Amino acid sequence: MKNPSWLRRNWLWVAGGSFFGIHLATWLLQRAMKSSVKNEMQLKQRSAEE
């Protein structure tokens, strides 16, 4: 009998890792965008005050 492939033996780890990786990347992207928007708003507020 042939040994099952690595992917068939570890499909749950692959699926979990992909799920975690996608959510981590999305969270980091959201955080970067939020920070960027906040900085832009501060710059607009400073230029409006001057």
Rank of each mutant, 00 (worst) to 15 (best):
M1C: 01
M1H: 01
M1F: 02
M1N: 00
M1R: 01
K2I: 09
K2Q: 08
K2P: 07
N3Y: 04
P4D: 03
P4N: 09
P4K: 14
P4T: 09
S5H: 07
S5I: 03
S5T: 09
S5L: 05
S5G: 06
S5R: 10
W6H: 06
W6P: 06
W6K: 10
W6N: 08
L7I: 15
L7V: 15
L7K: 13
R8G: 12
R8Y: 14
R8Q: 14
R8H: 14
R9W: 09
N10I: 02
N10P: 01
W11K: 14
W11H: 15
L12W: 15
L12S: 12
W13V: 13
W13A: 13
W13M: 13
V14D: 04
V14I: 09
V14R: 02
V14L: 07
V14N: 03
V14P: 02
V14Y: 03
V14W: 04
A15S: 06
A15Y: 08
A15E: 03
G16D: 08
G16N: 10
G16A: 12
G16Q: 08
G16Y: 00
G16K: 04
G17K: 00
S18G: 14
S18R: 11
S18I: 11
S18A: 13
F19L: 05
F19T: 03
G21V: 01
G21M: 02
G21H: 00
I22C: 02
I22N: 02
H23R: 10
L24Y: 02
L24H: 04
L24V: 06
A25V: 05
A25C: 06
A25L: 07
A25Y: 05
A25S: 07
A25T: 06
T26D: 15
T26L: 15
W27S: 09
L28G: 12
L28A: 13
L28H: 10
L28I: 11
L29V: 14
L29H: 12
L29W: 12
Q30C: 13
Q30A: 14
Q30I: 13
R31M: 11
R31L: 11
A32Q: 15
M33T: 09
M33C: 11
K34C: 11
S35N: 11
S36K: 10
V37Q: 06
V37G: 05
V37N: 04
V37L: 07
K38Y: 04
N39D: 15
N39Q: 13
N39V: 13
E40H: 09
E40M: 08
E40A: 07
E40Y: 10
M41P: 05
M41E: 12
M41H: 12
M41A: 11
Q42W: 04
Q42L: 07
Q42D: 06
Q42M: 08
K44D: 07
K44G: 05
Q45F: 00
Q45I: 01
Q45C: 00
Q45H: 01
Q45N: 01
R46I: 02
R46W: 06
R46L: 06
R46Q: 07
S47T: 12
S47F: 13
S47K: 15
S47C: 11
A48D: 03
A48V: 01
A48S: 04
A48Y: 03
A48R: 03
E49N: 02
E49D: 03
E49S: 03
E49V: 00
E49P: 00
E49I: 01
E49M: 01
E50P: 06
E50T: 09
